[in-house]
Nucleic acid binder design. Structure first.
Lengths: 212, 212
DNA sequence: ACACATACCGACCGACCGGTATGTTGACGC
DNA sequence: GCGTCAACATACCGGTCGGTCGGTATGTGT
């Protein structure tokens, strides 16, 4: 009764393979244009397997958003920028981390939730909610650092939640411009503006007009 | 041979009706999920008429982006904010104008180009280019005012083009968050951050930390 | 040994997809 | 009055869509 006698449970389950395939396909072509058949081929499973794990395509959409939250959650949780003692350094570290992720082809750095919610916000409440949860959940991981920084640096009239969501808006917008222009340059530039805004908010003595 | 004897040429042509229907449908459900049949029903024309005017669905997508540019171009060209003598007032006027447009249901204020390009940037170069032209063309109308303001207020190290594109990124991102949350509140909040950034850039004496 | 559950398989379904082929209509030049 | 052409309408095409269903392989509890 050693491990080898057990019929090896597949290294990655059909469910996970489908979810991974969905992430890639939906980020590249959107939710509607991604067909169930195509997902099955990409994942190397049959349609029967698909509908064994997901009742409908919409169910898969919800699961894909959750899967995305899990994967990105792990990526950001393990990133180095959390180590800084100063909360403001962690905030800048986060933004730099996002900027560093922007490399190579556009479909490699865009956000599944942002892409998917554009198509389905008015037709699929379940997917819309899952995307909202993904984005807001991610923003929440930033919010704590921002709140600390706001307190330590005595910034007023700006709420941590609102600023955390603003960073997400800038990033989502940067992705759209990157898709429209066909390259990451404009995304990186807009993140520079975000960094400048944060610097002006938290460190106003730092040479506001940039001159001298 | 007076005007009445002429069989009134349709007040709006089939082509225009299809384009208008496409704007509404694509903004609500995206490009892929919008079918040709549905567009024909909405516009009150037959499928034959559709393919008389557009060789393919993709051709319609390109035309819809151009149509969108024309409609929004007119809307912004006629807006009051251009009247301000101070270029910075025109820039703030623009941002306030955008904020004022955000009312009612989400599908009423979102951007066709931003929605469509997310789905097709990797599959339809023609539509991608049309969306890019729409967004960049709109940004260009802002760029002149920003350039003037940069000169008049002596702001350095920020290019007018880059800042104009950043405003578009923030707005596009605001739309995504609005779609995800189901309402406009978060979009308005993020535009407030954009205004604060502009104020800090151009008017640094204006109470940088917001305190007192 | 046998009932039962899980995890699939893949042929099949009707609806709908984008697109085409053919026909009709009315304005306009000549 | 006649030929031409744009502007449609209608019927229809092959293919693909999301989804179903009867069946099977394998392991499990008793």
């Amino acid at each position: 009764m050693n491990a080898a006698t057990f019929p090896a449970p597949p290294r990655t389950s059909a469910r996970t393979k489908l979810l991974d395939a969905a992430l890639t396909a939906i980020r590249a072509k959107g939710y509607s244009a991604t067909s169930v058949d195509e997902l099955c081929v990409d994942a190397g499973v049959t349609k029967g397997a698909f509908f064994h794990h997901f009742a409908t395509k919409e169910t898969l959409g919800v699961a894909a958003a959750d899967h995305w939250s899990g994967i990105t959650g792990g990526l950001f949780a393990e990133a180095d920028y959390h180590r800084h003692a100063d909360p403001l350094d962690r905030v800048f570290g986060y933004v730099d981390f996002r900027a560093d992720l922007i490399e190579g082809p556009v479909k490699g750095f865009t956000c599944l939730a942002g892409t998917m919610v554009q198509e389905v916000y008015d037709t699929s409440p379940a997917i819309r909610a899952a995307c909202e949860a993904s984005i807001w959940g991610h923003a929440a991981t930033l919010e704590a650092d921002i709140a600390e920084a706001i307190e330590r640096y005595g910034v007023k009239r700006v709420s941590a939640r609102s600023l955390a969501l603003h960073t997400q808006a800038v990033l989502q917008g940067a992705f759209i411009l990157a898709k429209a222009s066909g390259g990451p340059d404009v995304a990186i530039e807009t993140i520079e503006h975000l960094k400048r805004y944060l610097a002006l908010l938290f460190l106003p003595s730092s040479n506001p007009k940039g001159n001298a």
